[in-house]
């Protein structure tokens, strides 16, 4: 069987029918209560979050939510958060720390929204603050890239003790189109860029950026979603259990060192 190329992975990661954050949330956890709003400006629907139970244990979950059709994508802004989305995520993460709940994030975004309002409300500041605060939280954090993890918009919910990628997801500094447009002055060279960027799970594992890769069925997650869910659930339970054994201060210090060495 021929190896899936980076560009093919980009296509798989972006498939409309590929499961989105809420599909994972609804299937991994026994219970999920969604919580809304950043207490400041709005409720950003491109980021969902709330409290769930993992095998009976309360956890805080946050996910970048894309749509599965045009209507849903309009509602979810194609999974491109505005500052209030990141601020909602931070609020929920701080809440998790207060109540000593582990945090699980699902990354799936083409990037933070590059809009007028986003700039007016401090997109850069919102992302910077999330990254900084996440590095200090004294609860375990596991981040899973489920589709497209692109730029600071992904990293804003991506500073964790364990960073995991699904086999056909990608995690990169920018979309291949954006990368091609900047470095090759031609956005149609996205295919070439996808290879050059080295953004597949395998590449990131080699760089030491991610900890683990979760296998996918042939042609993508949706072809045997139950199996992938079982795999992730097992992974979460095992790793949260291990991370919770580490004293809180040491956990944050260890997380600092993890990123310090990148």
């Amino acid at each position: 069987m021929a190896k899936t190329t980076a560009w093919e992975k980009v296509q798989l990661a972006r498939q409309l029918e590929r499961p989105k954050a809420l599909d994972y949330i609804n299937n991994l956890f026994d219970e999920f209560i969604e919580l809304h709003g950043d207490r400041n400006f709005a409720d950003d629907k491109s980021i969902v979050g709330g409290i769930a139970t993992l095998d009976g244990k309360p956890v805080t979950v946050i996910g970048e939510q894309k749509g599965k059709n045009a209507k849903e994508n309009l509602e979810r802004n194609f999974g491109m958060p505005n500052p209030e989305g990141y601020r909602k995520a931070l609020r929920l993460m701080k809440q998790a720390e207060k109540f000593n709940r582990p945090i699980i994030t699902f990354i799936d975004t083409p990037g933070a929204y590059p809009g007028l309002g986003a700039e007016e409300r401090g997109q850069g500041e919102a992302i910077a603050r999330n990254i900084m605060e996440m590095s200090q939280l004294e609860v375990p954090i596991i981040c899973i890239v489920i589709g497209e993890g692109s730029s600071g918009g992904a990293l804003a919910i991506g500073v964790g003790d364990k960073i995991v990628m699904l086999e056909n997801s990608i995690y990169s500094i920018l979309s291949p189109e954006g990368f091609a447009s900047i470095l090759y002055k031609d956005s149609s060279k996205a295919k070439e860029a996808a290879e050059d960027m080295k953004a597949t799970a395998e590449d990131l594992k080699k760089f030491g950026i991610i900890d683990d890769i979760i296998k996918e069925p042939k042609d993508g997650v949706q072809n045997d979603f139950d199996k992938v869910i079982k795999e992730i659930k097992k992974y979460l339970i095992k790793n949260i259990d291990e991370l919770e054994k580490i004293p809180k201060k040491k956990l944050a210090e260890q997380r600092y060192q993890k990123f310090r060495n990148m």
Binding site: G152, L155, Y171, I173, D203, L204, I209, F259, R260, M262
Partner: peptide, 10 residues
Amino acid sequence: GIISLMQMAK
């Protein structure tokens, strides 16, 4: 690439 992105976290 991704190494640059991680400098933001660092």
